[in-house]
Measured scan of single mutants.
Amino acid sequence: GLMCLEHEDEKVNMYCVTDDQLICALCKLVGRHRDHQVAALSE
């Protein structure tokens, strides 16, 4: 899978609806997407 741009060791596994961007779990937990609307990726 694709790796996160901000956290190079994390794979992107969710999608930020607010930013129209693929993000990883760390982005959602501690990153700038924590208050955004996110959706899980169905692979």
Rank of each mutant, 00 (worst) to 15 (best):
Q37T: 09
V12L: 05
Q21G: 07
V12P: 02
N13F: 15
L22T: 14
H33T: 02
L22K: 15
L26Q: 15
L26V: 11
C27V: 00
H7E: 03
Q21M: 11
N13D: 08
R34M: 10
C4E: 03
D20C: 04
K11I: 15
L5Y: 09
A40E: 10
C16M: 01
H36E: 02
T18Q: 08
H7D: 01
H7L: 00
L2P: 06
V30S: 13
L2K: 15
E10Q: 06
L41T: 13
K11G: 06
V12F: 15
L41I: 08
D35T: 09
L5Q: 06
L5M: 04
M14H: 07
R32H: 07
K28E: 10
V30T: 14
L2I: 14
C16E: 06
Q21L: 07
D35M: 04
E10A: 07
M3G: 07
E6C: 02
V38L: 09
H7T: 02
D19R: 01
L2G: 15
E8T: 15
V30E: 13
H36W: 00
L29F: 04
L2V: 14
M3F: 13
V17Q: 15
Q37Y: 06
L22S: 15
C24D: 00
E43F: 04
L41C: 14
H7G: 02
G31K: 08
V12T: 07
E6A: 08
L29I: 06
Q21P: 02
A39G: 12
K28H: 12
M3E: 04
G1V: 05
Q37V: 06
D9A: 03
Q21T: 08
H33L: 00
L41N: 09
D9S: 10
D20L: 03
S42W: 03
T18H: 05
M3D: 10
C4L: 01
L41R: 12
L5H: 09
C4D: 03
C16R: 02
S42M: 04
E6K: 06
H7V: 00
M14S: 14
N13E: 08
L26T: 14
L22E: 15
C24Q: 00
Y15R: 14
L26A: 12
I23Q: 08
Y15H: 13
S42K: 13
C16L: 00
G1K: 12
M14T: 15
D35L: 06
C4Q: 04
K11H: 14
I23E: 05
T18L: 04
Q37M: 04
V17S: 14
